[in-house]
Design a protein around this nucleic acid. Structure first.
Lengths: 334, 334
DNA sequence: TTGAAAGCGCTAACAC
DNA sequence: GTGTTAGCGCTTTCAA
């Protein structure tokens, strides 16, 4: 008999507690003006009936739904999937509910935002989205607060939580130089987001400061198959160290080395994202960890601040990434 | 000047079209009683003002929000992440919005369902969830239609869309026997969901029918590190072929073979899920593809049917998986 | 074919 | 400290 008969409305709780609906609402909201005695009666009644307020009705009344829109691009990328999981968990901890859409094209992103607006979300989080300019525009048009995670935009009015790609690039340069490399290459992705350009910029700049230069640069789509195809070109440059825009590219490069004829000595290789695979023994890849834990925490904190007070001024935060050193950059005793 | 001044309400559209709010609502809903003339005026006015109906208000009025709750367990598992992505896309195509929660513990799953109910979701989709009994119970208590994807439950009243694990196991047995293997092992995961037990059951049964038996069985948590640790035990059995409950386990097994001393000849290995990594050259793993494309389509179709007509009788669907043959089960010419 | 009015479930301003 | 009432934006009888 644990099947509750029907949906309970605040009216029923009020009836049982011999009190008005407003008092029920206030008691449950923790309004200090309610007497201890009535509060207890209300709480007891609510518990007995298993009352759960209808958040849709509350949202309509309050002009605040507690729903946060999340726009992602590609959950097949483990990095995005992991970020989404963390976001969902952290939003949940703050009693916010994520309405999730995939926006993997410019039009898709815009229509996702429109759908979100119809649902009166309190804020939008865009996760490493290309097309950030469309998203920014759509959110401004609809006056929806936006938090851009791991992407940034010239617009000063949106919130941005972003990894420090410049310093990541520099960190990688220092590490590779320290490991004794003297010639360097960059394996680029095909996207042209500021954030991915920054990785390269930071890398090259620090190389220069150390008296070195980039001797090769190849770019590839972010798919293992494609990267595997163009990797030989990169290898033929003979660079002693390669910084890859992404772990996927790095894995493909390692595979290419293994497939290459003769016992070619592998260059030192560094990836980006520190995905699970990087720690597996077959790859054992040195990689930049963007500290998603902190990045998602700050993102959710920012979104929450907006929900609480919609006039919260825009924030910009930068997260320091760190390098996880593994075998792929260990000097090979030949 | 493309910044729309404010949120437009149906009242404003009515005013501009010189008509009442009810007519606006009807025209936009495609009510056939509205004259062609007024309909056009309304549509034009709506377009001019950029009117988007407030779905929260509509939901309150209609007792149907168009929101579907989705409960997932682990987005770090690429198989779940991919499934979620497909679900989101297909829900979107039917104008349904997914409210996503992570329920990776029994309590987490229950509280996720409760949150979803507060938001008056029209249905709940649970994705490969352990704790399905808790989820079933919570949904029944709240009278929420539930679609269980890739998990099943004794309860006849919930919708189930499920891969045919029994026949998958049989298919794998046939394949391995056909490749000449004579001794067999099973690398099990630690979950005890019916669906994962079925894989093994189907496998063993078909082996028996072919006159063979299982000569070893080892189980592991679904993590690469843990699987790598217990894999040697499995290898020491000397089985000529191993069916793994999961691609992750299969990858770990392959890695274990590579790490093993001496030029041990690898057993034939089959995985489950056909994840992206399975097709990479280093692994080149034969794996069962559960046909997520079709499974998610059917899941969303079922959810949609419920949203349209909440009294839709429960459906049970079984999806035929297929085997993707790759190098890991090719006979090695020694 | 269209309009007026009521009401979905909730909260908060305003009484008392 | 608590009740009464109005109203969030929408749809939908009911009446014309």
């Amino acid at each position: 008999m644990d099947r509750e008969k029907k949906k309970i409305r605040s009216f029923e709780v009020a009836e049982l507690a011999q009190i008005s609906r407003s008092t029920v609402s206030r008691a449950l909201a923790g309004d200090p003006r309610i007497s201890e005695d009535t509060r207890e009666r209300v709480l007891a009644a609510a518990a007995e009936l298993g009352y759960q307020p209808n958040l849709i009705a509350r949202g309509l009344k309050n002009q605040s739904t507690g729903i946060v829109g999340v726009v992602v691009t590609d959950l097949n990328n483990p990095y995005h999937a992991h970020a989404l999981q963390l976001l969902i968990e952290k939003l949940g901890a703050r009693r916010l509910a994520p309405l999730v859409f995939v926006g993997d094209t410019a039009e898709g992103a815009e229509s996702a935002i429109e759908r979100l607006m119809s649902y009166q979300v309190d804020a939008v989080i865009a996760l490493a989205a290309p097309f950030s300019s469309q998203i920014v525009r759509a959110c401004k048009a609809g006056r929806k607060p936006l938090v851009l995670m791991n992407r940034y935009d010239g617009d000063e009015t949106v919130n941005v939580i972003c990894g420090d790609s410049i310093s990541a690039g520099a960190m990688v340069a220092d590490h590779l130089v320290g490991q004794g490399a003297r010639t360097f290459a960059y394996f680029a992705g095909e996207d042209s987001t500021t954030i991915s350009l920054d990785r390269e910029t930071g890398f090259v700049k620090r190389l220069n400061e150390n008296g070195f230069a980039l001797s090769a640069r190849v770019s590839s789509r972010y798919s293992h198959a494609h990267a595997l195809k163009v990797a030989p070109e990169l290898l033929s440059s003979g660079a002693q160290a390669v910084f890859c825009a992404n772990d996927t590219l790095a894995f493909a490069l390692i595979d290419a080395v293994r497939q290459s004829p003769a016992a070619a000595v592998s260059p030192l290789i560094v990836g980006y994202d520190n995905s699970a695979l990087a720690s597996w023994p077959i790859y054992d890849l040195t990689s930049v960890d963007q500290n998603l834990e902190e990045m998602t925490s700050l993102t959710v904190e920012t979104a929450h601040a907006i929900v609480i007070a919609s006039d919260t001024p825009p924030k910009r935060h930068t997260i320091k990434p760190y390098l996880v050193e593994r075998g792929s950059t260990r000097i090979q005793s030949a």
